[in-house]
């Protein structure tokens, strides 16, 4: 198992706009994700945050742990409030600024989907980032439409595990015809950094979906947070790719594809998942991975 990651020099030298003092849990993926994202985007960035873990992680009045302007907004309004910041900055002639909406999976897949769809349809010049920890973690682990099939949460308890598969968010965003859609993982920081750097240079609505581990919610050891998240890409359940101007490119190809059971069995939230469901997830994962590879070939 690869223990350390050799970060590129460019990334290491990039500005660190996240100061110490984050109120995140140990092993939190999204704390790291923000650090990497802002390294890629730089200080001319406004961060728009709806209700989510980051409403807390960032710090309470009068402290903020980000060295960029931050606008907190109601739960379902990240994309549209970001559109408003964009409009205001454009009026001020500050068109070079990146306006980044930073929302969880609840704020993206569920309650914020309408305003996100509206912003994407208008092709607002914003970067929308969903840090997906696959449930309502801030409120204490309730299922969202990003929760995978077979997962335990406090609202899908033992005997009533989540029956429905995770919503295909990339598919929804691609259907809007926006210029850039990508997935990213905190377990692959170089790939993550490159995607944010690239997204910064694109005009229009950009959507990046981050898989973000949550040790309390996933029932994993906080020390293994990155390791478990890396397995999600190695088993192809969370492939890393991007779709730029309609062209699909897989950006991280696992050297050796591992079975999904290894990823699932590494987490307490899937402890009660039966073999049947696991086999089904294996089949569905392979189908999705193969269709992604086909799409990559066909759009070349």
């Amino acid at each position: 198992m690869q223990r350390f990651i050799n970060l590129s020099e460019e990334m290491r030298k990039g500005p660190d706009l996240v100061t110490p003092g984050l109120l995140s849990c140990q092993g939190c993926g999204t704390a790291l994700a923000m650090k990497l994202a802002l390294k890629g985007l730089g200080e001319r960035t406004v961060v728009v945050i709806p209700a989510c873990c980051w409403s807390i992680i960032i710090g309470t009045y009068p402290h903020s742990t980000l060295n960029v302007p931050v606008v907190h907004v109601p739960f379902e309004t990240a994309a549209v409030a970001a559109s408003g910041v964009r409009a205001g900055l454009d009026v001020r002639g500050e068109e070079d600024v990146t306006v980044m909406a930073w929302a969880g999976d609840g704020g993206t897949f569920d309650i914020g989907l309408q305003s996100l769809s509206g912003a994407a349809e208008r092709n607002e010049d914003i970067l929308y980032v969903c840090y997906d920890n696959e449930a309502y973690m801030n409120t204490g682990i309730q299922r969202s439409s990003a929760t995978p099939v077979g997962a335990w949460t406090t609202t899908t308890p033992g005997g009533s595990l989540k029956q429905e598969p995770k919503k295909d968010m990339e598919g929804i965003m691609l259907a809007h015809g926006i210029p850039y859609v990508a997935t990213a993982s905190v377990a692959y920081p170089d790939d993550f950094f490159e995607k944010f750097k690239k997204a910064k240079g694109i005009k229009g609505t950009r959507f990046i979906h981050i898989l973000s581990p949550c040790p309390p919610g996933w029932r994993i050891d906080s020390a293994k947070s990155i390791q478990v998240t890396r397995m999600a890409t190695q088993c192809c359940i969370f492939p890393l790719y991007e779709v730029e101007a309609g062209i699909t490119r897989v950006t991280v190809r696992p050297e050796e594809v591992i079975p999904v059971s290894r990823y699932l069995r590494s987490q307490g939230r899937f402890r009660e998942m039966g073999e049947d469901t696991m086999e089904l997830v294996q089949v569905l994962t392979e189908q999705r991975w193969n269709s992604l590879l086909e799409r990559e070939t066909s759009t070349k």
Partner: peptide, 27 residues
């Protein structure tokens, strides 16, 4: 000389102005 954001709901109509007014322009 104004930007007109043609949103998908009234909820969003006012939410957009949270952004623009925080950016410091008359909304």
């Amino acid at each position: 000389d104004a930007k007109f954001i043609k949103v998908e709901s009234e909820h969003s109509a006012l939410a957009a102005l949270i952004g623009s007014a925080t950016a410091g322009v008359r909304s």
